[in-house]
Structure formats: C-alpha cells, structure tokens
Write a protein that binds this DNA or RNA. Structure first.
Lengths: 210, 210
DNA sequence: TGACTTACAGAACGACCGTTCGTATTTTGA
DNA sequence: TCAAAATACGAACGGTCGTTCTGTAAGTCA
C-alpha cells in the first residue's frame, strides 16, 4: 500500500470514528486535519470534496460491517443459528466497537441523511435496503430449513429485528438505560419464539399463560 | 399575546419545522431570518443564544406532542383502548403533521443529540424517559384492567413499541418503502396479541399454526 | 397624546467552513 | 542514483456561523 493510500485510510478511519459521534454535519476538514496533525489542504487533496470523503466513509463502514457482522454469520449453519449469529454480531458491532464510539454509524446517518437528496443518501439507502433484504433472505432460509414457521413473513421479520436494534440504541445512548441490551435480547428471544416452527411454538405457549 | 411573543412563536414554529428535517445542527439563525424575512439580530434577540432557541423548540414540540398524542388518548377508555389510541395518535404525529415535514422531531434529535452533553440533551433525555415511563404505565393499566396478561413487563412493552415506531420511520423515510406503515401496524397488532390476557391468547394461537 | 418600553434593523466581529492555488517535500520506479 | 510523480504544506478565497453593539422604529399603557 502506497503512502497516499495509507494516509487516506487513516483519514477515513478517523472520519468514520468522528461521524459515528457527530454525524457528517458535525465533522469538518479542519477538525480532522487537526486531529491527524496534518494540513487542511493536504487532507482535502485526498478526496477533492467533502462529499467524496463522506462516500469513502460510507464504503469503509460497509466493508467493516460485512467483515464484522455478515461474513462471520455465514460460518454459522443455515437457518436459525445464522439468524442468531446475525443478531449477536450486530450487538457487537453496535456495542463493542472502538472504531464507532458513537454507536452504529448507519443509524446515525440514516436519520441525518433521510431528507438530504444526493449521492451520499442514495448510497446509504441502497446499502440499507440491501441489508434488510439480506436479513429477510436469512429468515426465509430459516423457513426452508424448517426452523421458522412456513407462514412467516421474512420481510416482517427483518422489520421487527431492525426495530429491536433501533430501540436498543435509543435506550442505551439517549436514555442511558442500563437494561437496554437485556431488553433487546428479550425482544429478540420473543421474536425467535413466535417465528419458530410448530414444535417450538408448543414449548413457548405455556409461558404465555403463566 | 404581545407582538414579541407572537414573533417568537412564529420563529419557534419555523425552527421546529426546519429542525425536523435538518436537525439542530442543520438550522442556523441566518437561514431562519431569511425564511421569516427578518434580520438575524432581530431574530436572535428573542433568544439570546442558539441553545435557548433549541430549548424553546424542544418545549414547543413537547407541548404539541402532548396535545396531539397524549391528551386525546386520555379520552379513550383505560387499558387496551388507550394503548391503541396512543399508537394511532403517534402514527398521525409522525405521518400527517404538516408542522413536522421531516418526521418525528424527537427521533431526529434523539440520534443527533445522544452524544452531545449539555442542557438541550438533558431536556430531551428527560422528556423521552418520561414518555417511555408513560407508555409503560399505560401498559400497566391495561394489565390491571385485565386486558393484558398479568406477567407482562410494561417496560418491555414500551421498548417494543418504541422499536416499531423507529423501524417505521427508518423504512419510510430512508428506504422509502411503501409498506412501512402497514408493517408497523402488523408489528403492533402482533405486540397486542402476545400481550393480551389468556382469552385473547387462545384466539391468536391457531394463527401461528396455520 | 406623550413617555416609556419593547422589538427590530444594520453593521461589524472573530472564528470556522469547504475549496483553490502555487510551492516545497517526499516517495517511487527505472 | 536521479528524474518524474505523488504527496503534503501554507496562504488565501468568498461565505456563513453565532454573537455583540448601536440606533431607530414600533408597540404599550398611563
């Protein structure tokens, strides 16, 4: 890796870290230059515009998400085990990730960019649409494997799981509720239970009438 | 209402509208002054600082939320009907509110401010904590009324409902998924069904084995 | 109506924004 | 090793930011 590529990678990492906390609106070329002890113009030259820097951050985040969340989940057996791996990998991504001190950068950017037309928003929306489709497909596989009920709506499953993640982030980051993670785990356990195929449903049914 | 109070109210309304789209970071005194056709300094004098303006916006949003979501729900009978009213009033708040073209301002600010210490963050967090407690209390009432199962965790109910709202906003605003609202309604219907007291649980059980 | 208070405008402040340009320095490959 | 290419710097640009001041117009109320 050439010197330039190396510097660029450092910049993108630092920008990603900062953007997870402050959003794209909250980061500036000058601030990044100061943190990395280099000149504004020198840093700027690597991208040519702030928008290009934002795109680079988005791509980097997508790569890391794939490496930390999706690819490890592929090692788990198809079906329910893979779904559970996805969930726990996402928790790790959101909670124990020193490169994202501000939590999941996609959640921060999703809210920030949803009303800002442009290529950055387009990239983000496409990534997120693809991710929801990926989760849905994983749920569909769990149906095929006989782990989930045949009439499960896989897209609804993805929607529900997204809600759990977002609520956890909200409880933890804004409300500073120490039970955020355990509430998310409880919600996910319930989602799994009601998605399960008939035999598992019998196991959980008595719990409802306790 | 004096001239000053009237102008101030107009400014706060416009600031709220803008902040729902761009967040507090995205609004500026100059931009508001231009939209309202008045001078920066004249507008500024009503607040003394941008932070005070942000606090005023937050208070105004809280008042409107109470008037549009909470107070009408109090007209509904205690228990499950009131919970359903809360849900639908929140949908109206998020979807059919011309004063919030950027969607629920609390969701936008929750993500933007969660890492920004200061009085604005404190106000917002306190509001949102109180709101979650209010939802939980409403669920608790539904338990007392015999509408929800006795072993329901009301705080978990509030968590789950928050997740549904956030996922809906995400699907609708970022992904532009036209099924966002109906997915939220489906998720809420399921949440109600699995929260319901025993007799209702028997009704929904066969659906799972279809 | 007249005195008084409030509300607004205008100009300017230093700070920072993204960006451009010309120049120096360092890295690279033959 | 040496020239070409890549990389970084420093200074400056026009703009916008939140904020402060001073003067004036408008509203308020006896």
């Amino acid at each position: 890796m050439s010197k330039g590529q190396q510097t660029r990678a450092t910049i993108v990492s630092e920008a990603m870290r900062a953007a997870s906390v402050e959003g794209f609106q909250g980061i500036s070329i000058g601030m990044l230059a100061e943190r990395l002890k280099m000149s504004k113009s020198g840093l700027f030259a690597h991208f040519g515009s702030k928008e290009e820097l934002e795109k680079a951050v988005l791509d980097e985040a997508a790569d890391r998400f794939a490496a930390m969340v999706w690819q490890p989940a592929l090692q788990a057996p198809r079906g329910r085990p893979r779904i559970e791996a996805l969930f726990h990998n996402m928790l790790d991504w959101m909670l124990h990730n020193r490169d994202l001190p501000g939590g999941c950068i996609f959640m921060a950017l999703s809210v920030e960019m949803d009303d800002k037309p442009g290529p950055v928003r387009d990239d983000l929306a496409e990534m997120q649409t693809r991710w929801q489709a990926t989760v849905a497909r994983s749920a569909q596989i769990a149906v095929q494997e006989g782990h989930f009920r045949a009439d499960l709506d896989p897209r609804q499953f993805a929607f529900d799981m997204q809600g759990i993640m977002m609520a956890m982030s909200y409880y933890r980051r804004l409300l500073k509720d120490p039970s955020a993670v355990q509430r998310a785990e409880a919600a996910f356990a319930d989602l799994l239970a009601r998605s399960a195929a008939a035999p598992a449903a019998i196991e959980t049914a008595p719990l409802r009438s306790l």
